[in-house]
Write a protein that binds this DNA or RNA. Structure first.
Length: 349
DNA sequence: AAAGTACCCAACCGCAAGGAC
DNA sequence: GGTCCTTGCGGTTGGGTACTT
């Protein structure tokens, strides 16, 4: 048999993405929505027309248009394989992505989930709607793994949750037992698996614990300023405006402040569809923001937008339960971080 | 100041699952 | 039912940057 390569190896560009490539991709997705990645490399030649169409939104588009026209390769479409396009979108460009600076709360949640789910980064990422699996995976490999190792080596073993540590103290055993329990049940019946998940999470539904959300370490859900891809694109645009000094595709301010064109955006209730996205566009006022906001409206983006954090709500167990367990519920309505106050990982188990 | 080393992260690769034909 | 195609996932790598000597 043998699977054919996802694309011709000849003439396919690899390596870091350039700002113009990013914009082409975003423009394409604005028009067609995420998905059908196979068609992206061939169809992205349309992007200049799209940008023309959007030219009235902000003056900055004139510059973008001029820039794109100055790049001869633009009209030939993206010289990228579909896989690369999808990855770039999901890991970097899609709306609602928060980059860098993991909060303590997020850190703990990742540790919890890693203990429960193992290295199923996509599954873990689904509980952190504004983080990508790649981001979480990187963060785990570079920070958390070491941290946990240190803790265990330090004798405390505050968190026996590491999948590698395995041993640890009694708490680690409990965690392992819970994990095993949950997985066994998952294999037998989805309903019992749901119950197992409930058991494993063993949340205290009391209002006191619900109120104990660490407001200092994490912003209130309603006002969480998650960087949208408008910010991401704005950074790219910043890169354009500068002399091409650094490596292509690398944003000088990749983890730093947002540009002047992009203001902080509110969490967008993506599942509800349109309003918030366009609001974000008008707030940002930038060309890329308009492009991105329009992208967020695409109806095909259900799989993408379902990961996007929405407005917070009172951290009630019923909400958490729904969020976690209801297949039909759009996960974009509320992020787990919004409903699940986290304490010490060791307390968790 | 230069060289060496460690760290971080974006991107690639290969595999697997699911759907279409 | 079999084959091919597309998408998603997890592991790994390579290049850039920061830090140390």
């Amino acid at each position: 048999m043998g699977r054919p390569p996802c694309c011709d190896k000849v003439g396919v560009k690899k390596g870091p993405w350039t700002p113009e490539e990013d914009l082409m991709l975003v423009s394409y997705i604005q028009e067609h929505g995420p998905g059908n990645w196979r068609a992206v490399p061939t169809n992205t030649g349309e992007c200049v027309c799209l940008i023309d169409r959007a030219a009235g939104v902000a003056g900055g588009l004139q510059k973008i248009r001029a820039f794109l026209r100055s790049v001869t390769s633009v009209c030939a479409g993206l010289m990228r394989c579909s896989k690369s396009c999808r990855l770039r979108w999901t890991n970097y460009l899609r709306p609602g992505i928060k980059r860098g600076n993991f909060t303590d709360q997020e850190e703990k949640l990742i540790v919890h989930l890693q203990a429960l789910l193992g290295n199923r980064w996509a599954a873990i990422a689904s509980y952190l709607p504004e983080r990508t699996d790649n981001d979480i995976k990187n963060y785990w490999n570079t920070h958390l793994k070491k941290k946990l190792k240190k803790m265990q080596a330090g004798g405390g073993g505050e968190d026996g949750a590491s999948s590698e540590g395995g041993g640890g103290g009694g708490r680690g055993k409990v965690a392992a037992a819970l994990k095993g329990q949950w997985e066994r049940r998952l294999q037998t019946d989805i309903h019992t698996a749901r119950q197992a998940l409930r058991d494993a999470l063993s949340l205290d539904p009391s209002p006191t614990s619900a109120k104990s959300a660490p407001e200092a370490s994490a912003p209130p859900a309603g006002s969480a300023a998650y960087a949208s891809s408008a910010d991401n694109i704005a950074r790219l645009l910043q890169g354009w405006m500068r002399p091409a000094g650094g490596g292509a595709g690398k944003c000088p301010e990749a983890s730093g402040s947002t540009s002047t064109t992009a203001t902080t955006t509110q969490p967008q209730p993506q599942c509800s569809g349109d309003g918030a996205a366009s609001a974000s566009a008008s707030q940002s006022g930038g060309a890329a923001a308009a492009v991105v906001a329009a992208t967020a409206q695409t109806p095909e983006g259900s799989t993408e937008t379902s990961k996007i954090a929405g407005a917070g709500s009172a951290p009630a167990f019923s909400m958490l339960e729904s969020w976690l367990l209801d297949d039909g519920m759009c996960h974009g309505d509320v992020g787990l971080m919004d409903v699940m106050p986290l304490g010490d990982p060791s307390e968790f188990f």
